[in-house]
Simulated scan of single mutants.
Amino acid sequence: MNHWTDRLESDDGEDPLVRPYTITRGRTAPRRDDLTLITVVTTVEPDETRPAGRRLEPEHRAILEQCREPAAVAEIAAELDLPVSVTKILIGDLEALGRVTTRPPLAAERSGGLNLEILQAVRDGLQRL
């Protein structure tokens, strides 16, 4: 996946900032303000009795695929090559649909502090942005 800003000189005349605006449906902030860079996101198998709802964007599907194993918000944003703010909006969409769960890192819950490995993973994810 290419970075969304790589298309500054688009051949089709489309503004490069249109895609993030489109996939978030014009929203600029997530519904929740408690999602942090180290919030862990995990995919939940869909409930077959629940209606499917609206069609998912490719980025939503990429998040579901990546979060089959728990992943931090920063890691997800780095993998999608999208701004963290856009990624948080997409995660919020999936959470509202019951397709993902979010939680603080287990190390932070148990010890009251952060695990060095988690901090390094977040740093590495941010550097990839």
Rank of each mutant, 00 (worst) to 15 (best):
M1C: 05
N2G: 05
N2T: 12
N2V: 09
W4N: 05
W4H: 13
T5F: 02
T5N: 06
D6I: 05
S10N: 15
E14H: 04
D15T: 05
P16C: 07
P16Q: 07
L17K: 06
R19A: 05
R19K: 13
R19M: 12
T24P: 03
G26C: 06
G26D: 10
G26W: 13
T28H: 04
T28D: 10
T28E: 07
R31A: 12
R31I: 11
R32F: 03
D33R: 06
D33A: 10
D33G: 13
D34R: 08
L35G: 00
T36C: 00
L37A: 09
T39H: 09
V44H: 07
V44S: 09
D47I: 10
E48A: 13
E48F: 10
T49L: 01
R50I: 07
P51L: 00
R54E: 10
R54P: 13
E57A: 09
E57R: 09
H60K: 06
A62T: 03
I63Q: 03
E65M: 13
E65T: 14
C67L: 03
C67A: 08
R68H: 04
R68A: 08
E69I: 07
E69S: 13
A71L: 14
E75N: 12
E75S: 14
E75Q: 15
A78Y: 00
D81G: 15
L82Q: 08
P83K: 07
K88A: 02
K88S: 00
L90A: 02
I91F: 01
G92E: 00
G92T: 01
D93I: 00
L94E: 03
A96V: 08
A96R: 10
G98F: 01
R99N: 03
R99P: 06
T102W: 05
R103A: 08
A107S: 15
A108W: 07
E109S: 12
S111A: 12
G113C: 11
L114S: 14
L114Y: 15
N115P: 03
E117G: 15
I118Q: 09
I118G: 12
L119N: 15
Q120E: 14
Q120W: 12
Q120D: 10
V122P: 07
R123I: 13
R123H: 14
D124G: 12
G125W: 02
L126I: 03
L126G: 06
Q127C: 06
L129W: 03
